[in-house]
Design a protein around this nucleic acid. Sequence first.
DNA 1: TCCTTATTTTAGATGCAGCTAAATTAAGAT
DNA 2: ATCTTAATTTAGCTGCATCTAAAATAAGGA
Lengths: 100, 100
Amino acid sequence: MEPLQVIAAPRRMRILELVWDRELAAGDIAAEFDVSWSAVSQHLTVLKKAGFLVERREGTSRFYRADKEALGPLRAVVEDHWRTSLLRIKHLAEEEECSK
Amino acid sequence: MEPLQVIAAPRRMRILELVWDRELAAGDIAAEFDVSWSAVSQHLTVLKKAGFLVERREGTSRFYRADKEALGPLRAVVEDHWRTSLLRIKHLAEEEECSK
DNA sequence: TCCTTATTTTAGATGCAGCTAAATTAAGAT
DNA sequence: ATCTTAATTTAGCTGCATCTAAAATAAGGA
């Protein structure tokens, strides 16, 4: 899958944020969403195949963390996304308001 | 629409490349694809609403060009995409050469 | 060995981004 | 006025990315 497509999915973008500077077990990641573990696991697979996530196994658990270097120019996009997300959502809401 | 979603569509990425450092009429852009003008027009609308394209009207024609500054960190992603496309074409050409 | 915990994999369902076709707008030429 | 060219808008269709549910895998304890 194309790197850009990999990070374009909102759920995957959020997963990257969660494991940006700490390791998290798959279950702890899944707990952050109100979708099935299965769905989250499938996203983790996509991110891992793209090389954006590194996996460490310990017992029955699997821990993930972001590989920032692997993102290349997308790294700045990901970091900017979080910085501006609140602001952007506010603007989108205002546009909605105007079109009423 | 979220900026990342806007450039994540391959067709829109290609459109941006076409008008990266020249102005092009909507029809000339559409001619580059084997989809309907309508489809291309809809992509132009998305890009324009995101602020990534500027429009200039002249007679019945509408000319578009990329607004590089508006892309922010996405600019590097687009340029990287373009660069790797050229590389891919070059490699394909070399393979052609070898097989002669 | 069987159970539990943690997670993935498979198979099938669903929503929506992107498409087509047809109607519409807009400007200029005849 | 009508026709042509250039492009957009609208309405409806389709494929695929993402989702759920259920079965499978894998490691560790009782």
